[in-house]
Design a protein around this nucleic acid. Structure first.
Lengths: 129, 129
DNA sequence: AATATTAGTATTATTTTTCATACTTACACA
DNA sequence: TGTGTAAGTATGAAAAATAATACTAATATT
């Protein structure tokens, strides 16, 4: 009786047959909105500096390119997270704010910020596990 | 006084000069651990079926390939989120569980699951905003 | 008349992620 | 002797994400 193909084991550990599907997992759904290299930091930035102008975000979010910024802001807008207000001025002025729905992300953003800080500390201390 | 380059406006809306840096934003740090196509659903799956065997995950997480599964599990292990227990049996048996540190992700996972569900509803209803 | 300003767009490259496929190991069982 | 099993590795191809660069509009200021 050296291996696990015996009846005892098979009966002791029946397989749990829950299915996890990309298209129905609510955590994955959230990740589709917050995922990628820039969404989280952008939401965080707008959360802290709202209303945020385009150029202001371009300067404050280090490393982002103009085209990425435009693209990511559009996607967040399409997802109903932020709103875009255009002022009919020259040169143009556009202000971004979190929508009411976007603000419902707050618990996620806050818990992620908290966790991220502790993860940093753990990494600094050598990640002994 | 048609545009915003007048003194009044410049004084009314001074630029907030907070800097958001990829490498120091704690939200981005968390995203590096949870991001990508499979991490969130995997954590969720292990969270619900722990201890989870490799082949069990391969069958329950729909669409994931064997090599992706291996790779993502290794990264989660390297990040201290999950632990891998190998049983010296033939055929092999390997069980994955969330570590104590991995369990500290629970508030994030739970708030993301909750939000994801509401987002789905909003999308179904046509996303009027 | 030339230059600066803001918030973009368009296009092409490069990098990163993900996928598909074939291969491996050690033993049990037919 | 050959086949099945679980948990992988290795390799190259394809797809997706991100970056780099150049361009635009309308007006104000110099």
């Amino acid at each position: 009786m050296k291996n696990n193909t015996n009846i005892e084991n098979q009966e002791d550990k029946p397989e749990k047959k829950i299915i996890f599907d990309e298209n129905s997992c609510p955590v994955t759904a959230t990740m589709k909105v917050l995922g990628g290299k820039w969404k989280a930091i952008l939401i965080n930035a707008i959360y802290h500096t709202s209303p945020a102008r385009f150029g202001e975000l371009k300067r404050s979010v280090k490393g982002i390119t103009q085209s990425m910024l435009t693209q990511q802001l559009r996607e967040l807008e399409d997802d109903g997270i932020i709103s875009r207000k255009i002022y009919a001025e020259i040169p143009p002025r556009v202000e971004y704010t979190l929508t009411e729905f976007g603000l419902t992300l707050s618990p996620i953003i806050l818990s992620m910020a908290k966790w991220g800080k502790e993860y940093r500390i753990k990494k600094q201390n050598g990640m002994k596990h």
